[in-house]
């Protein structure tokens, strides 16, 4: 690492904050994605189990996106 001069602490803190915010945003997005996927899968499974004799494809999903 190069010499950061007398204010090294501030520079390190600033970059640490930047890393923290970036990683935090990425983690938020990824964790949220996982949890939504999991919930969606669980709901689909429940729907499939209920309608197994009729249609196995979750047709309800197509129309049920954004209202």
């Amino acid at each position: 690492m190069i010499d950061l001069g007398p204010h090294a602490l501030f520079i390190q803190l600033a970059w640490a904050a930047a890393g923290l915010v970036t990683l935090g945003l990425i983690a938020w997005v990824m964790i949220d994605y996982r949890s939504q996927r999991r919930q969606l899968a669980a709901l689909e499974q429940a729907a499939n189990a209920r309608r197994r004799p009729a249609a196995p494809t979750p047709a309800v999903l197509e129309g049920a996106g954004v209202p």
């Binding site: 709901l43 209920r50 309800v60």
Partner: peptide, 25 residues
Amino acid sequence: LHLSAMRNEILRRRVRTLRILAAQR
């Protein structure tokens, strides 16, 4: 990040709609 957050939001709304449908059923 924005595209990912949008994708999450769409999935969240699907989950919400499915929950409401399930509750109605």
